[in-house]
Design a protein around this nucleic acid. Sequence first.
RNA 1: GCUCAAGUGGCGGAAUUGGUAGACGCGCUGGAUUCAAAAUCCAGUUUCUUCGGAAGUGUGGGUUCGAUUCCCACCUUGAGUACCA
Length: 1005
Amino acid sequence: MKYNFNEIEAKWQKYWAENQTFKADNISDKPKYYVLDMFPYPSGAGLHVGHPLGYIASDIYARYKRHQGYNVLHPQGYDSFGLPAEQYAIQTGQHPAITTAENIKTYRRQLDQIGFSFDWSREVRTSDPSYYKWTQWIFIQLFNSWYNNESDKAEDISELISIFETEGNATVNAICDENIEPFSAEEWNSFSSKKQQQILLQYRLTYLAETEVNWCPALGTVLANDEIVNGVSERGGHPVIRKKMTQWSMRISAYAERLLQGLETIDWTDSLKESQRNWIGKSVGAQVEFRVQSSKFSVSVFTTRPDTIFGVSFMTLAPEHELVSKITTPDQKAEVDAYIEATAKRSERDRVADVKNITGAFTGAYAEHPFTKKPIPIWIGDYVLAGYGTGAVMSVPCGDQRDYDFAKHFNIPIHNIFDGVDISEKAFADKEKTVIANSDFLNGMNYKKATKRAIYELEQIGQGEGKTNYRLRDAVFSRQRYWGEPFPVYYVNGMPQMIDVEHLPIELPEVRNYLPTETGEPPLGNATVWAWDTEKNEVVSNDLIDDKTVFPLELNTMPGWAGSSQYFNRYMDPNNEDAIFSKDAMDYWQQVDLYIGGSEHATGHLLYSRFWQKFMFDKGYVNHDEFAKKLINQGMILGTSAFVYRVFPHWNKKITSSKTESGLISESVFYVSQSIFELFSDRREYYKKIVKDLYPILKSKLLSLYSKHLNNQLDESDIINHSDSYITFTVDKIHADVSYVNSSDELDIEGFKNWRPEFKNAEFLTKENETFKVHREVEKMSKSKYNVVNPDNICEQYGADSLRLYEMFLGPLEQYKPWNTAGITGVHSFLKKLWKLYFDDNGLKVTDATPTKDNLKTLHKTIKKVQEDIENFSFNTSVSTFMIAANELTAQKCTSKEILKPLLVLVSPYAPHIAEELWSQLEHNESISTVPFPEFDESHLVESTKNYPISFNGKMRFTMELPLDLSKKDIEKAVMANEKTKEQLQGREPKKVIIVPGKIVNIVG
RNA sequence: GCUCAAGUGGCGGAAUUGGUAGACGCGCUGGAUUCAAAAUCCAGUUUCUUCGGAAGUGUGGGUUCGAUUCCCACCUUGAGUACCA
C-alpha cells in the first residue's frame, strides 16, 4: 500500500469534524489545560505559510496534552472587525459583513486542510452581534466604574456618588490626582444633573474628554499610540497630526503600576516584558513647585533628579504650556509668539527628526529657587514635551546633556554641583559615580541620600513631594469608522447615557456609504435609522429625534483592540446568551495556560487585554488578574522577495557650458538583471563609467536611443566619451511575483511579460550567455511584496503532515526565518519512510515479534527526547529525532507492534493524519488523539561500556571503548597503555590526567 | 543614542547542567537500479594536509585540565524604542 497522503488527510479531517473529536467539555474529571492562539484577522489574501507557524506549535502542544490525559481547550475564531474590509467597502460598495464572511470561509477551508485540533464549536467572531454584545457590555461596566486609589481597585460609580453626597470630593481628589475643583457635600447635592454628570465623567474608567489625539487625515480617523510607527500610520503609512477632539478614552493609566507589577507574576518572554515596561515608562522622582517672581503663578516640574536642585540654572516650559502666555513679559512677547507659531507649524515628525537643532525663546520671567530664593530665568523650548510629566522641567545643565546643550547654545551659566567632575565639555549624567557639592545641606551626599533629603526639605517648605510618573497615556477608544463595534451610548443634552444591558446588542446600522458625512461626521452619520427611543427601548429613525424620548446615538465606533481584549474568556462559554461567560465555566477553565502569538502585539493587544482582565478581576468576574500564565512569541516567517531593476534612460544636451537640457525617454524604459545592475552601482563615476561598461551589452539599445531622441549623427566614441549629447540612467527596483522565479533566481521572462500590461513589450536585458537573474531580499511576507507562498499548493503536493513537520523543522519557534520550500522534500521522504515501516508492497508488515534490545533502545531514546522537546517548545529538534528513529528502525528491520504502536503516539501531535491512519490500520477503532503518551523506561538505555573520548590538552584525539564500571585508576592504566597515547605524548610524561567517569579522559602534557 | 536578541560548513540548523563541534535535513559529488527518466537505495561532503595529522564556532583577551557554552572589551546583523526631564 502506498502512502496516499491526500486521501488519508481528507479522510481524517472528515472523521474529526464528524465525531467532534476535539470538542472540549466544560465538565470533566480530567485536569484542564487551555492552549490559545492569537486569533487571525481574516484578510482577503487568505492564509500564507507564515500564519500557521504558531498554530502548528500550539496544536502540537494541545495534542500532546490530550495524550497526557488533560481536558484541553484549544479554540479558534476571527478578529473580524477592521480597516481592510471597510476600505474595500468604500471602493466597491459591498457591505463589509459580506467580504468578511467570504474571507472567513477561505480561512476556515485553509485551516481545516492543515489538520488543527481546534474546537470549532466555540468559534467567536468579533463582528458578530452575539459576540460584540459582550464587548458593549464591558464598555458599560467600565463606564459605571471609577478607580479607587485607596483600595487600589476599580469600584462601582455608585460608591463614588455616595462619597460625594456625604463628604464632597476632598478626599477623593487627593487620591485621584485629578485637576477637579473641590466641592463639599452640600455643593454636590445642589449641582444640576448635568454638572454632576460632567464631574462623574472625569472619574469613570471610560470617559468622554477633549483630548489631543493622533489624527490621520488620509484614513479619516484617530489612531492610538501603538498604531503609529515612526510618525506615520501603521496601516498604510500615512502622515499623522495632532488634533484636539472629543473622544472616548480608557483610563489605563490608573492601572499603570499594577500592569508593571503583574509582569513579575507571569511566564512571558523577557523581551516582551521589557517592551511593556518601556511602554509603561515608570520614573520615580519628585514634583517641585517654583514660584514665578512678582506673580501669583507657580511652575510645577517633574524631575528624577531632585538631588541636583541646586544645579538649576534655568527652567524650560513646553511651548504649548498654559503658563507661557500668562508669564511672558511685554518686551519678550513678540519673540515668544513667533517661536510658538514656528513650532506649531512643524509636524511631530519634523520635530523628532530634527533633534540636533536647538531652539527656544526667553519669556522674560523669572522663577524663584525654593531654597536659595535666587531668580531663575524661564525659557520655552520644544525639547520639552507638553504631554509628559507637567510639560515643564527644571534645567540642570551640569547633569543633563539636553539642558547642557540648551545652556551652551543660549549662553546660560552652568553651575557645577558635582564633586571632582569636569563639565567643560559635556554634562555629567552618571549619577552613581560622584557626590553632591555646592549644594548647601546636600553637600557630600551621594545620589540616593541627596534625593531623599531634597524631597524631605521640599516637603518641609511645602514646595514639592516625592512623585512617580508614568509614560503610559490613557487609550483613545473612539474611531471614526463604520466597521467596528457601535457604542451602547446615546446623548441627552450632550451628556452620554448608557443603554440598559438588557437591550444589547446595539447592532451596526445600514448606511448609504462608508465614508465620513459631508459635515465631517463619522460614517455612522450616514445612517438614517440611528436614534434611541428611551420609551420603546429600541433603535429608531433619526427623523423621530425630539427632546422628550428619542435621542441621537453615538456616531463613533470602537477600535480594533476592543473585540480582542476579552475573547480568551469568552471562549470558555461562547454561546452563553445571558452572560459573557458563566461562573462555572470560569471556575473550571480559570485562565489561559499557554498563549502563542506574534511579538508585534506587545504594546497593543497584550497590554490592553491585561488592563481589561485586571478590571474584570476587580469586579469579581474572573479569578485571575492576569489572563495568560505563559506566553510564547513565535517568530515571523519571512518571504524571499524577487526584484527586477527598471532603468529609466534620460537624454541630456549641453546648451552652454553651464546649462544642460534633459528629459526622460519614457517609452524606452527597460529592465535589467542583477548582473547588469551591478555595473550601475558605482555612482561616483556615474555617466562615463556606466555608459562605458554597458556599451558592449547595450550597444544597439544605446545607438537607437541616440538616434531617436537626440537626432544626432553620432559615432560610438561620442557615446563612450560623454560628449555634448549623452545619455544617463536612473534605476529603481520593482517587485517581481515570486511565482515567476525558480530556485536558482532565474526569471521566467515570458510568464512575467504576461503578468502586467506594462511588461508586455518591455525589453529584458542580461549579459550574454546568462539567464536573467533577479535580485533577492528577505522581507515580511505580504501581498504587496509579491512574495507570498500559499500553503494550499504545499498541502496538495506534499500533504498537511509534511507542511506541519517542515514549518517546525525550519528552526527554533521564536526565531524569524525566511521561507524556503527547497527542504520540504526531506520531511516528506521521512513520512514515506515512516509509512514503509508499517507497509510494504504486500501490505501491512507489522508483527507480534518480540522487540530486540536495539528496537527498545531506539524507541525509549525517542520517547525521552520528544517529550523533553515538546515541554521546551523545541519542536525543530524532535523532527530530527523522528528521522533518526525511523532511520534506525528501518536499519534494524523492526516490525514489532510493541515498538511501532507507541511510535505512532509520539508522531501523532506533529503529523496527526498519518498517525491516525496507521493507528487504525493496526486495528484500532478509536482516534489516536487521546491514547496515553508512552512511558519512558530508563532501563532500556543503560549501557555497560562507554566509548571514551581521549583528549590531550582538551583536544579530542581518539576514542577508546571501556567498561563503565571501571575505576578511575584502571581507566588511567588502560589509556596510558594505549599505543596512540604514547604516540601523542612522544615520550613526554603527562603533567596531569583528568578522568570524569562516563564522560571524558583529558591528558595534560 | 538607549534596550534586547543573535553571529557555528555552500544553506536551514544541532550540541538543554562547561566534557567527542557540525546531529538531522537541504544542496552537491560518486555509485547501484533503469532502455531512459522520476522515485528509491548505498557511499562521501568544515577547511587545510607532506594522508602521519593540524586548524576551526564574528574579533581580541581572560577564567579552566577542558569554552560554541562562563567573564571583559570590540565588530557585525536584526528587532524595539527614541528629546520621557
